[in-house]
Amino acid sequence: MVKMFIESLKNLTQKPATIGYPHTPSPSPKDYRGTIYYQEDLCIFCDLCEDVCPPGAILFEITNAAENIREYSYNPYLCIYCHACVDVCPKADEGCLVQAETRLAPLGRDSTLPQDVKLGYFMAKVTEAKNLDRKWDAFEARAAQSRDEMAEFKAEKKRLKQAAMKAKKEADAKTKAEAEAKEEVQAEITIENNVETKTETKKEPTKIASAMPQLLTEPKDGKKDDLTQIKGIAEKIELILNEKGIYHFQQIALWTEENIKWADENISFVGRVKREKWIEQAKELLAKK
């Protein structure tokens, strides 16, 4: 009892062990697990972070099913700051998903919301703190619907493809049978002519769908442009482009719609060339040069 009494008297003369928050700021320790920040131009849209997030605070909404364009959204007030998304992100080292060392202030009814592009599309659109939960619920439903639409679109595409295959097969069988018949009978040349013109018209669009752009076997004058200056092209993609035979900004600047389709199929993820505006960037860089 006496010992504790002496200790208490000592404490009276000591500085307080607590800090004078809010007059003095709370110390922020190093490597604290805080808010998640995102950079769209580094994202490869693998959706791993969305799959792993335990509370479902990260969602991708598909805004354009035909070109597979996705928008990242994040709710910092639903996040449990567990670090799982950053662990799973294949581009985390480059800065696609980063965990900051501070957290956002807790959500109050009248608090001002952070306006940061790196927090994703949802937080950029929402301005009022009021009913944030309800807005997020509505957004969740919208994102789920966009998933369904995407699935429908894919199924439709598959169905069309299968139908085209079937039609082609039938047409082939027909021409074969007719050819056989022709051999046997050796007559009615007019019908055969008709069939030939039909098949020719059919083949043409498939050819145009993905035309190869102008490719080189080696760089002009032996000196290639630094393609990584285009936002969205990292070193790895540059290597692939070089392998295919693309070395200069001029080559990319001259791409047509068909060339872009070819690039989508052969080089990168679908829709990337358009989304990141490679051609416009290449033109600008070419003008600077």
């Binding site: 320790p29 490597d31 604290y32 697990r33 449990i80 700051y81 567990c82 670090h83």
Partner: peptide
């Protein structure tokens, strides 16, 4: 605990 795990309560 906060320094080595990044949080005071939920260490994960």
């Amino acid at each position: 605990l906060e320094a080595i795990t990044g949080n005071r309560v939920q260490y994960d």
